[in-house]
Amino acid sequence: MTQEPAIAFEDVAFGIGDLSAAFSFERAAGSVTAILGPSGAGKSTLLNLAAGFLTPSAGRIGLNGKDVTRLAPSERGVSMVFQDNNLFAHLDIRTNIGLGLDPALRLDRTAWSQVDHALDRVGLGGFGKRMPATLSGGEQQRVALARAFVRRRPVLLLDEPFDGLGPGLAADMLDLMLEIRAEVGATVLMVTHDPDEASAAADQILFIARGRIAADAPAAGFFDRADLPDLLAYLGNGAKRRGGATI
């Protein structure tokens, strides 16, 4: 079986002038890729292009062998987890997860039991009737992962999902994400600004600078490289540059 790349960006271009971005890369099914780079470099742009929130001005985006360049976000087979506001604050936890199964919430009993199972899976069994505001930040992200879990889409896009959770909690969440990814068999693109998180979770690194892919390399030993001026500048200000979230 010839291995079709799970994610393929072919000369994808977006925007013009100083804010332009152009990406070309491929990812094998089941891989986990961390996307790093300075604020405003285009990390989130890349993710939003993959998700379909932005439409490229040129190029082609393929997901699992299908050209999705012109497809709506919901038709692309992707799940997405953001840093904040993953849950509709006025809907309870079960409903938030249930929407992942059917956007009009027409769910039968088996579907609802799937929802409850997903809650159990992320360690929040019995939380279904609670409102998002009554949960901690980490618990809310677990719910978001639970929704990705029930959706079982082949591509999982994460936009700094564990930022602001504190190191211990972030590490736990990372493990949970990797387990869920393995169970679903999804290919992961994960924007992060934490080199440790990238080393721990990813097999590949995409380093983005000024709207271009400055490096596309295996994660092992990546942060010890001295041949990338952009990387040195990025790490130089302290290996863990907090804040400056990409929006």
Partner: peptide, 17 residues
């Protein structure tokens, strides 16, 4: 929040839902 609209798009919610 902008994530609401993104999530709605991602999940395929539109129109009446």
């Amino acid at each position: 929040p902008p994530e609401y609209w993104k999530t709605a798009a991602n999940l395929g919610m539109n129109g009446f839902s």
